[in-house]
Structure formats: C-alpha cells, structure tokens
Simulated scan of single mutants.
Amino acid sequence: MWHPVGELPARVYWRRRLVVLIVLLGVLGGAGWLGFTLLAGRDDDAAASDASRPLPEPALARVVPSLSAVATPDPPPVTPAAAAAQAAAPAPTAGGSCTDAMLALEVRTPRTAAVGSKPTFELAVGNVSAVPCVRPLDKNLQEIVMFDAAGTRVWGSNDCFPEATVDARTLAPGEVVTVPLVWSGLTSEPTCTAERVAPAPGTYVLRARLDTKVSPDATLALE
C-alpha cells in the first residue's frame, strides 16, 4: 500500500493520495463545523425562549401571601365613655375623707422581745396624698393581729379589751400619726374565753388594720 506499483512514476500516486486525503479532511472539517453551528443556534434559541418566559412564583410565595395584600383592620373609634374611663382619676379634694389610697399604714415592732414580756407596738398612719384629709382613728377601727409561722392566729388587740371611741383626725400631707399599743405577752382569741398563755419562742408576724386599710406584715422574734 505504501509502495505503489504501476506504469506511472511513484510521485504521481503520492500526489493522488495526498489530494484524496485533503478532500477527506475538508469534508470532515465541514461536517464538524456545520454540526457545531447547528448546536450553537439551538442553544441560543433555547436561551432566548427561557428569557422571554416569566419566572415561576416561589413556593413560599404561593403559601404565604404578600404583606401588601393583607388588609389591617382600622382601630375602633374611641367612644366618649371609653375616653372618660381612660382619663386619670380626679385629684383628691382638700379637706375631704382620706381614702385607703391616700394613706400609708404600718405596724412597728421592737423586732425582738422576751417570752412573757410586754412589748409595745405602734400603729402608724400617714397621709401620702398632696392635700389634707380627714380619717376616723376610732379605737374600734384599729386592730393588730399576730400569727405564728404556720399562719395560725395567736393574738388580736381587740379580743379581750375592745374599746369604742370617736376620733376623727385631719391629717396634713406627709403627716404621720402613731398610736402605741402595749401587748400583754399572752395569746387570745376573739371571744377571749380560751386560756391565755405565753407563746412559744419563735418568729411571729403582726398585721395592722384601720377599718378597711391593711398594713404590710411586720415580724417579731420571741426569745
């Protein structure tokens, strides 16, 4: 094959083979270029089609509506009655009755006392408003009650020696009135018929009352 035999010179056969090879290469190259052109044109058409097609809506947007589409209800109108209810409470009248909100009530103790002794407690009533006011400090409206650690009532100031007096006080703004009360050091109950004994050592709670006003708790340790 590589050594042509014939009547013509060998270079003639080599030229023919070279021409055939060039033609063959040209045909193959043209076919390849044509295929590449067709594929490139198809890709361009697909890209143009995708660009003109609208983007699909995200899955989340199909589930959760846009906030701009959500209508917010208008607040209800404020009626005159509602406006009056929202208005601040009127200021207290000077010289009027002292309401519970205008008073501070406190029971004061010596903190510690010996079992069986007779400590003195104080009922402190103060006007915390900005105007003077009147409050009855009648003895029958005052009371101090003692409880043990379990919450059991141990003693009350009105159990055995109730008093009835009339004592209306005008309290100036910031004024504090203290009423002393001596405890006998013994237990009691409202009918004052049970045996009265000295409470056992321990910590006790005292709570004061002036009619409907109740004080915070104070402690007394009996030793």
Rank of each mutant, 00 (worst) to 15 (best):
A218Y: 12
A164M: 06
S117K: 09
R209W: 08
A81M: 01
E175S: 01
T203P: 02
L206K: 09
P132H: 01
D44Q: 14
R42V: 11
T193R: 14
N158P: 00
T212S: 10
E122W: 13
M146D: 08
A51H: 08
L34Y: 09
L25D: 06
V27F: 01
C98S: 04
A194G: 03
A84I: 05
E7V: 08
T170E: 00
Q142N: 04
V20N: 14
V182K: 13
E163D: 12
C160W: 04
R196H: 11
V64S: 13
E195H: 08
G30Y: 13
P56R: 10
V115T: 09
S188F: 04
L222D: 10
R209S: 15
R207Y: 06
L28I: 10
P119I: 05
C98V: 00
K213F: 03
G26S: 13
L171G: 07
E175L: 02
A71H: 03
P80Y: 02
F161I: 08
P73M: 04
K213R: 13
R207N: 13
A51L: 05
F36Q: 15
V179M: 10
R196M: 02
A221R: 05
L25K: 06
L210I: 03
L24S: 14
M102K: 11
V115K: 15
L141V: 00
L123K: 02
L24D: 13
A31E: 14
V64L: 14
A104M: 09
V107F: 04
R17W: 03
F36T: 13
N158K: 01
L38A: 15
P80L: 08
P119M: 04
W183H: 12
P173W: 01
A130Y: 00
L34E: 09
G151W: 09
L28F: 12
L18G: 15
S49F: 02
F161A: 14
A81C: 02
R135I: 00
